[in-house]
Simulated assay, not measured.
Amino acid sequence: MMKIGICLCIIMSAFNNITAQSAKIDTEKLLEYYETQRYADAAQYLQTIYSGDTQDIKALSQIAYCHMMAGKLPEAEKSYLKINTLQPNNLPTLFSLASINSRRGNASNAKNYLQQIIQIDSLNFNAYKQLAIYAETPESKLNYLKKANDLNSTDPDVAYDLSITYSGLKQYLPAYDVLKTAIAADTENFTLQQALLPVANQLTKYPEVIEIGEKLLKNHADVNVMNDMGQAYFYVKNYQKCIMLYKMLEDTGVQNEGTLYFMALSYRELKDYNNAAIYAQKTIDEAISDHTNLYYAALAGIYEAKNQYNDALTAYKKGLTFGVSNIIYYRLGLLYDLNLKQPKNAAIYYQMYLKNNPDQEKEKDQIAYAKGRMLVLK
């Protein structure tokens, strides 16, 4: 509150010194607007004091700021553009214009204003930090974040984003170094410590993963921390601990293909072959999507379009290994019937399609066609 009061006093003091017009300002009313965050009212009030064609930069800045705080972005942009014309290359103005365009979803303009800033000030940390948001490739994002990190290696947001970008490019050692530097400056930053775990795993720093992970779990039982720790425990051959952590994930329904796989391997290492087999099968089941057969049907359809009928046949039959599919039965009937000229096989798949209870309303045309073709083929 003291800081807010000081800021408001500074604002009001500035108004008292703007021009002779400022004598008309009711400072108590304006202060009340600021204190109650009625920025739209403040902007409207200021506009009654200053004419629409005013070129007073301080007045325009206050009006623009009030509009921006009130969420009236077009009006704020209009005032800031006028300021930019009167006083080009002003960094606060360019940052405000970048912010307005960002909030309105105009990434191109926001990026343009930020690039103007770094042309004026090549060491501007915040400009590089924000430019990373608009990077079009991982490599350009990396360059912006590296610049920002070089200027302030302890900023946690930049360190986090830079480490994620490095990891995405499989550059794990620099990701690790960036995080360690930022963590050294803020040893209680759990977000950075959690981001360190998968990177440390990639670098085979398993004891460090376990040590940090145990501390993090005392603060919050995060599933990602448990996932990373489970891998570390497996690689240091503490199979019981790996199983315990991943069983906790399974009990809460957040298991995945990876956790089930490590459980299968851990049980195998403990010579508990019954559970190893169970979890190996669970791993396979988890890895298979309910829609896998549809994906193979789509692939087969592409092969058909390219007249690669044998490849299409292989893809359709592969799709059936992941479960029954009316679409594939019907498409196989058509493939054997119209392209491969094998009427006996065509009739088999048309019959399988009809026996699998196709939707009588949605698939009435296909049902009628299959029944008709079976009569002809027989």
Rank of each mutant, 00 (worst) to 15 (best):
M1C: 05
G5K: 11
L8S: 08
C9A: 15
I10Y: 13
I10D: 14
S13C: 06
I18R: 07
I18H: 01
A20W: 01
Q21Y: 05
A23T: 13
Q37I: 02
Y39H: 09
Y39R: 06
A40V: 08
A42M: 06
A43G: 04
A43N: 07
A43K: 08
Q44Y: 14
I49E: 08
D56E: 15
I57V: 15
Y65C: 08
C66K: 01
H67C: 00
L73E: 08
E77A: 13
E77I: 12
K78I: 10
S79T: 13
Y80N: 15
L86G: 03
N90Y: 12
F95P: 04
S96Q: 14
L97G: 05
A98T: 11
S99P: 00
R104K: 13
A107I: 03
L114R: 08
I120P: 03
L123F: 15
N126M: 11
K129S: 14
A132H: 02
A132Q: 02
Y134L: 08
S140N: 07
S140F: 00
D150G: 05
S153A: 14
D155N: 13
P156F: 08
Y160L: 15
Y160S: 13
L173I: 10
P174E: 01
A175P: 02
Y176W: 09
D177G: 03
A182P: 02
I183C: 04
T187C: 02
T187M: 10
Q194L: 07
Q202F: 00
L203G: 04
Y206C: 04
Y206S: 01
G213F: 00
G213K: 02
G213W: 00
A221P: 06
D222T: 11
M226F: 07
N227I: 06
M229F: 05
A232W: 03
Y239M: 06
L245G: 04
L245V: 08
Y246T: 14
L249R: 05
N256Q: 05
Y261K: 15
F262T: 12
S266D: 11
S266H: 06
L270E: 09
D272H: 10
N274G: 14
A276R: 01
I278L: 12
Y279C: 01
Q281V: 10
K282P: 01
I288V: 15
D290I: 15
A298N: 11
G301T: 11
Y309D: 00
Y309T: 03
Y309S: 03
N310S: 12
K318Y: 00
T321W: 00
T321Q: 10
F322Q: 03
G323K: 01
V324R: 14
I328Y: 08
G333H: 07
G333I: 07
L335C: 09
N345V: 09
A347W: 00
I348N: 10
Q351V: 00
Y353N: 10
E361T: 12
E363H: 05
K364T: 13
I367V: 07
A368Y: 02
A370D: 06
K378I: 11
